[in-house]
Write a protein that binds this DNA or RNA. Structure first.
Lengths: 207, 207
DNA sequence: GCTCACACGTGACAC
DNA sequence: TGTGTCACGTGTGAG
């Protein structure tokens, strides 16, 4: 279907028909010979140049290069893409399991819907009070519903946030916990009362 | 320097010189015409095939493809590599800052080690005392090393065993926790002092 | 008709 | 010396 012709394909090439585009572009049609020059000559040339540029571009963003030639550029790109894909997979996997473990410490949402009404019936309101004792110490008073594990979880969450409860007193009444405690802060750290209060309220609301 | 020759470049092409490799390979040199065939004809052909295969390979591992042609395959590969690089950077950044926060909690290990020596240096011994108040109540006194989270863990474990701490007082000295508390037991359950004491000691030894 | 993308065969060049 | 790679100009089919 292709190359069906039997004729002779003759091309004359002069001495300066090198890769100079301007030269060949100028003499595309006004040659002394026939009109042998194909019309898509410089179109094809531009296409080749574009492809070469892109190949160089592909090579330039690849840190792992073994050789300059077209084939190895592509092979290097393939191996690099595979490496990046593996890396992404591994990283997202690590990230997921880290999120899972950190959720595990902050979790525990699986229990008790009891004694809630008790506290309300006695007219006791949940409460968080934070007061400053000195530059390194806060005093906190917390009243929360008495649920099994809620105090433990409060301790745990505070511990997770790096807050140290120095002297703690926990009193249990019907339906409520009364917690009074001191929060110690390391020297040099800023002590934000509102910040601590908001944190405590967030923890309690999450229970 | 190149194309210095003045000669005529003549090529005869017959009717069945299509892309069939076996056909052209067979008749590479034993033609009726001259020896016009270049020696690297099928070498070049193989090179082209190899490059095409690799290009297809590059296309196959790229999930984002816009077009089939050579140029866009490479452009797609470039954009995909850039996307993967961004992704890797973002993920590793997230991972690092997550590690930083979790190291913040692990940073307490230094405190723990110091605290252990502190307690020993002060001549404080770990201790568990359990005494019976009435048929439903126990009084416990616990002295343990001050480690971050150990009190929280104690609470949690007791909670897990269904033991309710009614009124708890936690005092922190240099290197030790002093915990005094009441243990409430439901009516009808047997209250075994030694059992509770052993449980507490087991918990403390496991920390 | 035209444009675009590709495959082809070939000479030049480097190792 | 060959062996591999590249750019070139061209033919050709698809849209």
């Amino acid at each position: 279907m292709e190359h069906e012709h039997e004729d002779w394909l003759c091309v004359t090439i002069e001495e300066n028909d090198c890769s100079s585009q301007s030269m060949s572009r100028k003499r595309n049609y006004d040659d002394n010979t026939r009109e042998f020059k194909s019309k898509n000559l410089e179109v094809e040339r531009r296409r080749r140049e574009k492809l070469s540029r892109r190949l160089l571009m592909l090579r330039s963003i690849n840190p792992i290069i073994t050789n300059m030639n077209r084939g190895t550029i592509i092979v290097d790109a393939i191996t690099y893409i595979e490496k990046l894909q593996d890396e992404v997979q591994s990283l997202s996997q690590q990230l997921h399991q880290m999120e899972a473990t950190s959720e595990e410490t902050a979790e525990t949402k699986i229990d008790e819907i009891e004694a809630v009404e008790d506290m309300k019936n006695w007219g006791i309101q949940a409460e968080v009070i934070v007061a400053q004792i000195d530059e390194n110490k806060l005093w906190v008073k917390i009243i929360i519903e008495k649920k099994r594990g809620s105090f433990s979880k409060l301790m745990e969450t505070l511990n997770y946030f790096g807050i140290e409860l120095i002297d703690t007193n926990l009193t249990t009444t019907k339906g409520a916990f009364l917690i009074t405690s001191c929060i110690q802060v390391k020297d040099g750290e800023r002590l934000q009362i509102n910040q601590i209060k908001n944190l405590l309220e967030d923890i309690i609301n999450d229970m």
